[in-house]
Design a binder for these strands. Structure first.
Length: 196
DNA sequence: AACGAAGTCAACCGCTAATTT
DNA sequence: GAAATTAGCGGTTGACTTCGT
């Protein structure tokens, strides 16, 4: 499939936006320009980056390209069973909060996980629930979340049986932000979720 | 071989939150 | 504190490939 994507050098046409002079798939030359510029000057002030880097793109497009494909340590494709399991568990817990889920998977982006979910995992869950006469609580819960945004369901219920007060005791964003401690691993999260 | 349907995923859009002036 | 700007997010689109008939 990688080859297919590489060959996608088409220009998507859209009349709804006049902000980006150039749209559609990025060329190798554009990638090179953007990557060089960001490495030299840093990833900030995205609005001015395309002008300074000599790209006929909008800042949003540049930011997206950098974050999802060009920045260092990006993993593409080959999502492991362990990662898939983690995505399933985290989605059950967090719903469609792709950026939060992505933060738990080093090298993965929210866009990739979102795509993977929509094309693979959502169907997997559907199939599981269809083929199971007596659905387990896990499957039933997962299926429920697909159809209804889990924001309505207090996360504490999932984790701690619903006994905690939402406002005072728990902030899911902070709880799941491990960017500072560096201690988190896939194993750690899996272990934690096993007890959730 | 030809065609249409379904699947995949890169990229864009609109909106909101956060930050700066 | 208000307005403007910037960053980030999730949803959606659409080009392309693969599969089934």
């Amino acid at each position: 499939m990688r080859k297919q994507i590489e060959r996608k050098r088409h220009i998507r046409s859209s009349s709804s936006s006049l902000l980006c002079a150039n749209k559609g798939a990025w060329t190798a030359e554009e990638d090179q320009k953007l990557a060089d510029f960001v490495r030299t000057h840093g990833a900030k002030k995205w609005k001015s980056i395309p002008v300074q880097a000599g790209l006929n793109r909008c800042g949003k497009s540049c930011r997206f390209r950098w974050l999802n494909y060009l920045r260092p340590n990006i993993k593409r494709g080959n999502i492991s069973d362990q990662e898939e399991d983690l995505i399933l568990r985290l989605h059950k817990l967090l719903g469609n909060r792709w950026s939060l889920i992505a933060r738990r998977l080093p090298g993965r982006t929210d866009n990739e996980i979102k795509n993977y979910w929509n094309s693979h995992l959502s169907k997997k869950i559907m199939n599981q629930s269809d083929s199971t006469v007596e659905s387990s609580s896990v499957e039933a819960s997962a299926n429920h979340i697909v159809e209804e945004p889990p924001q309505e369901v207090p996360i504490q219920e999932n984790l701690f049986g619903g006994s905690l007060d939402i406002e005072t005791s728990f902030n899911v964003d902070e709880f799941f932000d491990f960017s500072n401690d560096g201690l988190l691993s896939l194993e750690w999260v899996s272990e934690f979720l096993d007890h959730a």
